[in-house]
Design a protein around this nucleic acid. Sequence first.
RNA 1: CGCGGAGUAGAGCAGUCUGGUAGCUCGUCGGGCUCAUAACCCGGAGGUCGUGUGGUUCGAAUCCCACCUCCGCAA
Length: 309
Amino acid sequence: MKIVFLGTPDFAVPSLNALITAGYEVVAVVTQPDRPVGRKAVLTPSPVKVAALSHGVKVLQFEKISRDGVEELKKLNADIMVTCAFGQILSKEVIDVAPKGIINVHGSLLPKYRGASPVQYAVINGDKIAGVTIMQTDTGIDTGDILAVEKTDVGEKETAGELFERLSKLGAELLLKTLKKIEDGSVVPVKQDEKNATYVKMIKKEDAKIDFSRPAAVVFNLVRGMHPWPIAFTYLRGKLLKIFSCEISHEEYDGAFGEVVRADMKNGIVVKCGVGAIIINELLLEGGSKQNQREFLAGRKIFEGDILG
RNA sequence: CGCGGAGUAGAGCAGUCUGGUAGCUCGUCGGGCUCAUAACCCGGAGGUCGUGUGGUUCGAAUCCCACCUCCGCAA
């Protein structure tokens, strides 16, 4: 079976590798154009492009595939196309290029969390269960018929990045299973239940701002869900303070929301929340680099009574 | 030339504006105390203050110049 693979970030790499390893003929990989990255704005290829090139697979890059890529896609004569976190909306023309259409690997249990950042929101919302769905792509956003689902428990302290990695592997396995079913005709498409559909937007940096009037568990989930990007943040004396990791305190403290109620080597950096408190583990102050709480305290940059927010 | 911060003891920082004996928190080493601790007390070691064998000065971590490295923001 000839396959065209469309994907961009790390999440998609295991799926691409799985297809190639399993012996499918991946005739081309489509990925987002190289983007400037880092302080020096170096033009950087996407993780999927790097993986494709290492396998010697042809790489195509379009600014807008629906506008620029249809003719070239047709020439590839693929039987089916596979998308995984591709990052561009596909037109009907693109969907109709391959006879068996397009199937998509999505990082949530559809119809929950349709859209751009399903994995992060599973963590941010404190979900106990997450998963991947393989679905038929149609012209809506993650609205096509479901072909296969795989669930997994979310660890109590798991970060979005960690869950991402697990789901990407789970997705790759499920993709192979589903392709087999498509080949032998045993796959059964199931319509999505529109009443239970939810959408999640792309995460913006502003979404990662911590509200210390919320319960400690909510703050904790936000910190987990925003790791490794964009990283939950607040302010300390007007300076940006990023919090990479924290835990929920089991002690009760008196103080205002966001008040630093403890800041010493013994207790760590403890911040009062709406309900309970959190203990900060790794953090970064504007202009500085990431430090653990011991290093931060050694530098004497935070004291009891400071208010975050 | 996108904006900004930083390089001082093993770690994290202050000191630089207003040049004049090198400091803080921690770690480490030795001793003490305790049933006990990431507890406490006493004492010690450890630094060419990023590089220039640069400039100014009686004297530079501090002022001036050049360079290197690291980091945050923005994209």
